[in-house]
Each structure stands twice: as structure tokens, then as C-alpha cells.
Amino acid sequence: MDPLTLYDANLGSRLLLGTARYPSPAVLGEAVRASGCEIVTVSLRREAGGGRSGESFWALIRDLGVKALPNTAGCRTAKEAVATAQMAREVFATDWIKLEVIGEEDTLQPDVFGLVDAARALVSEGFCVFPYTTDDLVVAERLLDAGCRVLMPWAAPIGSGRGVNNAFALRALRAHFPDTPLVVDAGLGAPSHATAVMELGYDAVLLNTAVARAGDPVGMARAFRLAVEAGRAGWRAQPMTPRDMAEPSTPTIDRPFDQNA
């Protein structure tokens, strides 16, 4: 067994799914099942409208039978994010919150300053904070100082489907925080991207657009499940170190060594 521990939860699946932009809630439900995921994220800010009028959709999410991780998507200030988290706690009866504080409307890049402020405030209110952040090492330090016990760095900007933009930075984060669960959030497009981040030793991946906007979301959810499992299994099995020279797997006994040198 190779369970993933995020705050108080032990999970068998290392794939988290977002719930936006599917063709229908029914397709979302099938994709969630095909992915094997045990956590789905759900946004509240805009859906809340003038009160609890998002309730029908939230009820569908609760009925998926997986843990809901509400997010603060669309929030631009720490204050907004804190208020949204408080509402989310009521709606989904959970202390978990995926914290997003958006600094730039066009690229949806996190405002890491507001993010740290909001994380501190939420931790003091007893929330388990999952911060959506960049791959910046110092920001990661600050988030841990603020009380976050999980980090969710991006691989590339939200919805871009580019895969890992900066493998060096993701490796550095992994090396600096060997004991903190690291979940890549945002920017993955193809299953191979998920395998790649799992091979870097990341603990899990969170996807939305890559599945929701695939031609066949359910088929893509299944593909990502396998890709995440493959990457994790590969990382645990300790891949060989790459070499610059060919290394015959069968000894070439008919030739003296010095000819190969």
C-alpha cells in the first residue's frame, strides 16, 4: 500500500479532479468514477450568487461520494478568499479549503502576497489550507510558515495544458520539502505530463480542463488515472540514472574493453 496523507485524510488515489467546464454534471460524475479520484475541487464564489442559490449543483457534488475540496477561485484579495472559505465551510461541512488568490485576471497567476496573508488568516481559524501557488521556493517557505501542510504549485498557467514549464523549479521544491505533500495544480494537458510530475516525486496531481475539455472526458479521466499510477510506480521503483553513452545490456565479450573507451 502506498497511501497519500493530506491533512487528516489517507487516500488511495493520487489524482484530484476539478468540477468545472464538463459538458454536463452527468459526464462529470462518470469522469470522477473513471478517474478513481477521492477528492474533487468545487468553486463557490460565483455560483453562490446572492446566497445559497448554487445549492442544486453543490448537492450534485456532494452526491458524487468523494471528498469535496472547496476552492476560492475568482477571489482577488485575501479578504474575499477568507470570506469565501468561511462560506465553503458551511456549505460542504469541511475545514479543507483550496486557496486561490488571483493576482492577474488574464493569466490567472496567483497573487502570492495575498495568498500568504489569506493562508495565515485561515489557518488561525482552523482551516486546512491547500494553497495554489507558483513554483517559487521562498513563497513555499512562507506558506509553510503560515501553517499550510500541503503545497500546490503550478506546472504551467491554469488551463494552458502545456505540461511542466520549469522542471528545475519543481525539482528544487521537491528537494527542499521532502516531507511536505506536494500536489501539482494547473497547467497539465496530456496524461504524459502527469506521469512526468509523478516521476519527479510529486505526491499527487490536480486536473480540470485537461479532462473536462477533452473530446471524451471519461476516457481522458481513465487515461490520467493510469498515467498517475504509472508515474508514481516508476518513481517508487527508482528509475535508472541516465548516461551519456550507450550501455549494452548484453556484454560484448568478443571485443576488448579498450576499443570501447
Binding site: 460565483r46 455560483e47 453562490a48 450568487g49 446572492g50 446566497g51 448554487g54 445549492e55 442544486s56 449543483f57
Partner: peptide, 13 residues
């Protein structure tokens, strides 16, 4: 397209 059931409320956003 918003998963929300309030009928007559147009938001600034």
C-alpha cells in the same frame, strides 16, 4: 453559464 438558480439578478462581473 453559471451553476446557480437565482433568476433575476444581473451581476456587474
Amino acid at each position: 453559464m453559471i451553476e446557480n438558480e437565482e433568476r433575476a439578478r444581473v451581476t456587474a462581473r
